[in-house]
Amino acid sequence: MQLEKEKKPVARKLLLKLLGSRENIKMNASAAVRVGELFGISENNIRVTLTRLQSARLITLVERGDYKLADKGIRFAKEIHQWREDENELVPWQNDWVVAQTSLLPKSDKKQLRTTERALKLVGMMKLASNMYVRPNNFSGGASEVRDKLHTLGLSGKALVFSANDFDNQTQAKAMKLWSHLDLETLYEVGCSEIEESLARIPTLPLEEATKESYVIGDRALYHLVFDPLLPSPFVDVAMRERYRNLVKKYDDMGAHIWLRFLDQN
């Protein structure tokens, strides 16, 4: 595997993810610099990033020069790790939908538009018609749960979020195809193979190589799960998604152990 071809991670994202990988992780500046070296990030970049994260109250300096997540950073980490519990919130689909109607939102506020687009993407909603986004209604809390998720992610309260269950045949058929371009089952299949191969390979690698590989492959898998729309059957093979998710959990646990070993080096 040619990990060197992977795009260099942003220092801010790298440090926050590592400090948030498990509870009470601590990292001093020297260890942070060694982390940066793995990915070709300069010492100056790492030290400046630590200062900025502390100023933003995402991390805090504790005894003996160690950094750990501050309360704001802990909230960030919990959002990242929500993927571990998402599958537990799902129920069988009853052929109904959650709809977000955004026609009341001002089009001139570009920042809010970007926030809206990201929020809709994170909860798996797709555009069905002008200013109308939908997803299958398969969360246990229904439209209310999706509404709360969207508001937490920054969707304006002016947007209407509700359930619908009586689309005409043409609209229903169109809605059923909205996620087909994502080719999710191929993503799950390829992802399972990549993780299984890495699980077999990592024990044979030197610690530095194992540390880097666990981050690169783990980060890619986590991105897929964070943005997974959590569709029900018949949109996807749910068993295949669960297999992929369980493999990622196993890989994430292994990666956290490897990173602890790396950070504990003198």
Rank of each mutant, 00 (worst) to 15 (best):
K5G: 07
E6M: 03
E6Y: 03
K7E: 04
P9W: 00
A11F: 02
R12E: 15
L19C: 14
S21R: 14
S21K: 12
I25Q: 13
I25S: 09
K26H: 08
K26A: 05
A29R: 10
A32K: 10
V35Y: 04
G36E: 01
G36M: 04
G40Y: 00
I41K: 00
S42P: 00
V48L: 14
L50M: 13
L53H: 08
L53I: 07
S55F: 04
S55C: 04
R57P: 00
G65F: 05
A70G: 10
D71H: 10
W83L: 03
W83K: 04
D86G: 00
N88D: 11
D96N: 15
Q101F: 07
S103F: 04
L104M: 10
L104D: 10
P106T: 02
S108V: 10
K111R: 15
K111S: 12
K111V: 14
L113V: 06
T115I: 13
R118F: 02
K121H: 13
G124Y: 03
G124A: 07
S130Q: 15
Y133L: 05
Y133W: 14
V146Y: 08
V146P: 09
L150I: 11
H151C: 08
T152C: 14
L153I: 09
G154R: 12
G154P: 10
L155D: 15
L155F: 14
S156K: 07
S156C: 06
S163C: 02
F167D: 12
N169L: 06
T186G: 07
E189K: 14
S193W: 01
E194H: 05
S198M: 14
P203G: 07
E209Y: 01
A210V: 06
K212I: 01
E213C: 00
S214H: 11
Y215I: 01
G218N: 03
G218Q: 03
D219H: 05
Y223A: 13
Y223C: 10
F227M: 09
D228F: 01
P232W: 06
F235C: 08
R241V: 03
Y244L: 07
V248W: 01
K249C: 05
Y251E: 05
I258T: 06
I258D: 02
W259I: 12
L260G: 06
L263D: 11
Q265V: 04
N266M: 09
